[in-house]
């Protein structure tokens, strides 16, 4: 896969995490756009034409679930795979997000960069080979 052409949109309100993820993904060879809340995330999902979106759930203005709904309702963005960024305590919301069409999720605390990159690549490959969405239901007790 030609990573240089792969563009990731990171939607995350925690500035330091957004910066860290952006920098890390850039170093892995991705092109990265950032958004600091749900509203900006929805706007950039249209204007930036990302190949994949990393979406936080708890955010001001518009939360991740609200943003995901808008992305999936829009024909321009509904095919873009979404990976949820979550905390261990948000499992209810994660299963909501997965049933809304998110492809996978990543627990933010203690994430490892290699794990994130593997996840991104897997989701993109699955998307390209036309495999159905993987609806992983997370365990209920974290």
């Amino acid at each position: 896969m030609d990573q240089k052409k792969t563009k990731i949109l990171v939607v995350e309100d925690e500035e330091i995490l957004l910066t860290a993820l952006t920098e890390e993904l850039k170093q892995e060879g991705f092109e990265v756009a950032g958004a600091k809340d749900g509203v900006e995330g929805v706007e950039k999902s249209i204007s930036e034409h990302p190949d994949l979106i990393l979406l936080d759930l708890v955010m001001p203005r518009l939360d991740g679930i609200g943003a995901l709904k808008q992305m999936k309702d829009n024909p321009q963005t509904k095919e873009i795979p979404v990976v949820i960024l979550t905390n261990l305590s948000d499992y209810d919301k994660v299963s909501d997000a997965l049933s809304l069409g998110a492809m996978d999720y990543l627990v933010k605390a203690n994430y490892r960069l290699e794990e994130l990159v593997t996840k991104i690549k897997t989701v993109l490959e699955r998307r390209q080979s036309g495999m159905p969405t993987l609806n992983v239901i997370p365990p209920t007790n974290g």
Binding site: L17, A20, N87, Y111
Partner: peptide, 25 residues
């Protein structure tokens, strides 16, 4: 409250760790 507190402390700490890792390079 517990989960928010965890969120409020863990998110910046995760960020700090990632940024510190980047600074090592």
């Amino acid at each position: 409250f517990t989960s928010m507190m965890v969120h409020e402390l863990r998110s910046p700490l995760t960020g700090i760790r990632s940024i510190a890792n980047l600074l090592k390079e």
